[in-house]
Design a protein around this nucleic acid. Structure first.
Lengths: 241, 241
DNA sequence: CGATTTGTTGATCTTACTCAATAATCGTGG
DNA sequence: CCACGATTATTGAGTAAGATCAACAAATCG
């Protein structure tokens, strides 16, 4: 097996384009990065990848499936922090405390790649482009979180759901999956919890968007019928005009 | 001037304990980190440190004063992202895009330290502890943003304001300033905008908290009278019991 | 196949927004 | 320093968006 092949197998299939930055690493460096990525056994629906308070050793890249990140507050209430789809990375919020500050649960059968943090730390000292990439990765998450804050603080239920659907659509597209027809891996409850809405509101907005011809919903299957209309609803710039 | 003195001058006074990590850097390393930090001329109230879309070259540490980070949306509406107080760092969200994704404006006369990103990148490849620290710094911001998301999505007006005040109190305390008596550097409008509340609601909650003896407000001066009560209102764990 | 969870729809209630009026504070120039 | 206008803050009254409660339908699972 050539080095570049190995790289392709454990890295790009992992959706780890992010970590690997093929355009700026030598084959040798790719191989090194490649070497630290571990493929774990798939998680079953409902299984936890990690839970709050446990020691942070690795972050993870989703290969297939979907993960829900959440926290349980003092009153035992769940708070959904986000959803991770294939090709995305999670666990970066735990670097600072060395303990996981949230829990991560599989929403469906999910296979993941484990990326031991200590090795990334060591490797990124040596490979300058990997370090630069880690900084960008972390920075991007900060920026995305800030966008979400605006969504949560200032937008109406319709704007929240519209933006949520368009965001999912974009993320699937980035992974070469259909951007117009996809399956929501999470329950309505999770969507509501994530967006700060009651389940009933989520349901009602879905129905309303369907009545207006923007989408077609059937259980967890969603089809985006009128992207332009959804963008209007979301009051955000067109992700893909 | 001894090296350690120089370090103290441009670094600790900057509130850059964060960047310097005295406990894990040698004097030589401290001196190197020290060397890249530039002290700029103070900003006057209303002056911008940077604006959305401009090239990102440096991030900044607040030495004194206060900064408001914000964005202007398509409709010309301002959205307040956050406030930076002495000893805190801002601009980390721009690493990814190489352009500033938000604007930063001085809320009062503010002196800052400029930290050229390219130099931190270079230096952190060489000084492993600096790299590790940068990762922690970025990771912490992600975690804090996630906490804010929960606040914005699921909490009532009282919980939001209560948490906001306790958070400010904690941040002042960390910088050895009074945690019980301080001046709000931002307008009510900014607080409301930041927390996703109407100005009027902010005003009303302030009055209500004052009536219940939790705080004393007089214009921008705030005194925390009953921390325990505020914590109850905020429905959060006591930051300092 | 029945039981349990998950999703939808309707009716009512509550929180916080909006609009409006007034009061206080700030900044500026005489 | 004070007077002026402009901005910023407070308070009240009415309204609307979304929460809650409740009932039912549909999907999922053992």
């Amino acid at each position: 097996m050539k080095k570049s092949d190995k790289f392709v197998v454990s890295c790009q299939q992992c959706g780890l384009n992010a970590l690997c930055i093929p355009y700026s690493l030598t084959h040798e460096e790719m191989d090194e990065v490649d070497g630290v990525v571990k493929r774990g056994k798939p998680l079953q629906r409902g299984e936890n990848l990690f839970t709050t308070g446990t020691t942070f050793n690795s972050f993870y890249a989703i290969r297939s499936g979907a993960i829900k990140s959440y926290n349980i507050d003092e009153n035992g209430e769940e708070h959904v922090i986000g959803f991770s789809l294939p090709g995305e990375i999670l666990g970066l919020d735990a670097i600072d405390t060395a303990k996981h500050v949230s829990s991560a649960k599989a929403l469906e059968t999910t296979s993941i790649c484990e990326i031991p943090y200590s090795q990334v730390e060591t490797l990124s000292s040596k490979i300058h482009n990997l370090q630069a990439h880690m900084y960008r990765l972390l920075s991007r998450e900060i920026r995305e979180d800030q966008e979400l804050q605006m969504l949560l603080g200032k937008k109406t239920a319709e704007e929240k759901i519209g933006t949520f659907l368009l965001n999912l659509s974009l993320r699937y597209e980035q992974r070469k999956l259909s951007s117009t027809l996809f399956r929501l891996p999470m329950a309505r409850t999770d969507i509501g919890n994530y967006l700060g809405l009651a389940v009933e509101t989520v349901s009602r907005v879905f129905t309303r968007l369907q009545c207006n011809g923007g989408i077609k919903v059937e259980g967890k299957e969603v089809e985006i019928l009128d992207r332009r209309y959804l963008c209007e609803i979301a009051h955000s710039a067109l992700p893909n005009p």
